[in-house]
Lab assay of single mutants.
Amino acid sequence: EVYKVKIKIERVLPNGEKVEEEITIEVEGMSEEELLALARELAAEPGVRIKEIEIEKLPP
C-alpha cells in the first residue's frame, strides 16, 4: 500500500519569526502508525511544531 503523507509544520526562526512549511512524501510498505512516527521524527527539530498531519491512502 502506498500512502501520501502531508505534514504542516511551524518553525520558529532564531529571530523569533514564525514560518509555516509543508512537507509531502509518498511512502510504501508502512503502517499508519509507522507513518505517524516518521512524521513526528521529521518535525522533531528544536523550534518546530507540527500543525497538521494528513495521511491519504493512494489507489493501487
Rank of each mutant, 00 (worst) to 15 (best):
L58H: 13
I7S: 00
Y3M: 10
M30P: 04
P60G: 11
K4Q: 07
E26I: 12
K57D: 03
P14W: 04
K51R: 13
R49F: 04
R11S: 02
E1L: 10
E28V: 06
E33Y: 08
E41S: 12
L13H: 06
V19N: 04
E21A: 10
V27C: 04
V27I: 14
E33C: 07
I25F: 11
G47F: 01
P14I: 08
E45P: 08
E17S: 14
R40F: 06
P60L: 03
E56F: 03
I23Y: 12
G47C: 04
A44V: 12
V19I: 12
K51I: 13
I25P: 00
P60T: 11
L58D: 03
K6A: 04
L36M: 10
M30R: 04
E20P: 03
I9N: 00
E22K: 04
E45R: 14
M30G: 10
K8A: 03
L13V: 02
L13T: 08
K57V: 10
T24D: 06
K8E: 01
I7K: 00
E1S: 12
E26M: 11
A43L: 07
M30E: 06
R40Q: 11
E45V: 09
K6E: 02
I53M: 07
I50S: 00
E45M: 15
I53P: 00
E17I: 13
E41I: 13
N15W: 10
E26N: 07
E54R: 15
V19A: 05
E17V: 12
E20M: 09
K51F: 07
E28K: 05
T24P: 01
L35F: 11
G16V: 00
L38Y: 12
A39R: 03
K51W: 09
P60H: 09
E32M: 12
I53H: 00
M30F: 10
E54V: 15
M30I: 10
V5G: 02
L42N: 02
E21S: 12
K18M: 15
V2R: 14
K4S: 05
M30A: 05
L35K: 01
I55R: 04
E26R: 09
T24W: 05
P59S: 15
E41Y: 10
T24H: 09
E41A: 15
P59K: 14
E32A: 12
K18S: 10
A37R: 11
L38F: 12
E22P: 01
A43C: 05
E54F: 12
L38W: 09
T24Y: 09
V19M: 10
L35R: 02
M30V: 06
E17M: 12
K18L: 12
E1P: 15
I25A: 02
E21M: 14
V19E: 04
K57L: 13
R40A: 08
L42P: 01
A39F: 09
R11H: 02
V27Q: 05
A44P: 05
K6L: 13
A37G: 14
P46I: 13
E45L: 15
S31P: 14
V48W: 05
L36C: 05
I55Y: 07
L36A: 08
I9D: 00
E20Y: 15
T24E: 10
S31Q: 10
V5P: 00
V2G: 11
E45K: 15
I23V: 07
I23E: 01
V27M: 14
P14F: 03
A39L: 12
L38A: 03
E41H: 13
R49N: 14
P14K: 06
S31K: 11
L58V: 07
I55P: 01
R40N: 05
E34V: 14
A43Q: 06
K18T: 13
V12I: 08
E34L: 13
E21N: 07
M30Q: 08
E1T: 11
K8C: 04
A44F: 12
T24Q: 06
E28C: 04
L36H: 09
P59M: 14
E45T: 15
E32K: 08
E32P: 14
E32W: 08
R40Y: 14
I9L: 08
E56W: 03
E20I: 12
K57I: 12
G16H: 03
P14A: 12
V19P: 01
V2E: 09
E52W: 15
P14T: 07
M30S: 05
I9Y: 10
S31W: 10
I55W: 06
E34Q: 15
K8G: 01
I7C: 01
P46C: 05
I53Q: 01
L38R: 09
V19Q: 10
R40T: 12
Y3H: 14
K57A: 08
I50T: 01
K4V: 07
I55F: 09
P46K: 10
V12N: 10
I23F: 07
E41M: 09
S31Y: 12
G29H: 10
G16R: 02
P46A: 12
I53W: 03
E56A: 14
R40G: 11
E22S: 07
V12G: 03
E20W: 09
P14R: 04
L13P: 01
M30Y: 15
E17K: 10
L13A: 06
E34R: 07
K57N: 05
E1N: 08
M30K: 07
P59R: 04
I7G: 00
E45W: 14
E21L: 14
E22H: 10
I53F: 04
E10S: 06
I55S: 03
E28G: 10
E20R: 05
K51G: 02
I53K: 00
E52Q: 12
V48S: 05
I23T: 02
V2W: 11
K8Y: 12
V27S: 06
R49D: 06
G16A: 02
L13N: 05
P60V: 13
K6T: 07
V5E: 00
E26L: 12
L58F: 10
P59F: 14
E26H: 08
L13R: 11
L58P: 11
K51D: 02
I9W: 08
I50K: 00
K6N: 09
V2Y: 13
V27R: 05
P59G: 13
I50N: 00
L58T: 11
E10C: 04
P60S: 13
P60D: 09
L38S: 03
R40K: 05
V19Y: 08
A44D: 06
I25N: 01
L38M: 10
E54G: 08
K8H: 09
A39S: 06
T24F: 13
V5L: 13
L42E: 02
N15T: 12
I9M: 07
I55D: 00
L35E: 01
A44E: 05
E28W: 06
A39M: 15
E26T: 10
L13Y: 12
A44G: 14
E56L: 09
E45Y: 14
E21C: 11
K6Y: 07
I55M: 06
G29T: 06
E17P: 01
I50E: 00
Y3N: 09
N15A: 02
E54S: 14
E20C: 04
I50M: 02
L13G: 09
N15C: 05
E22N: 07
I55L: 10
I25Q: 02
G47K: 03
E10I: 13
R11Q: 01
K51Y: 06
N15D: 11
L38D: 00
E52I: 09
K4Y: 08
E22T: 12
R49L: 09
N15V: 01
L35M: 13
S31G: 14
E21W: 15
K51N: 06
R11F: 04
I25V: 07
E33S: 13
G47L: 02
P59V: 15
V27Y: 08
G16F: 02
R11N: 01
V12Q: 13
L38N: 03
P46W: 12
I25K: 03
E54D: 09
I55T: 02
A43I: 14
Y3P: 11
E21I: 13
P59L: 11
V19D: 02
K57G: 08
A39G: 05
M30T: 03
K8R: 10
E10D: 04
E52L: 10
A44H: 09
E32G: 06
E54N: 15
E54Q: 06
G16K: 02
I53E: 00
L58W: 14
V48G: 04
K51M: 15
I53L: 04
E52V: 12
V5M: 14
A37N: 12
V27N: 03
E17T: 15
I7A: 01
K6S: 09
R49E: 13
V27F: 10
P59N: 13
V2C: 04
S31N: 06
L42Y: 14
L58I: 15
A37K: 11
E1D: 10
G47A: 07
K6G: 01
K18W: 14
E54H: 14
K8F: 09
E45H: 12
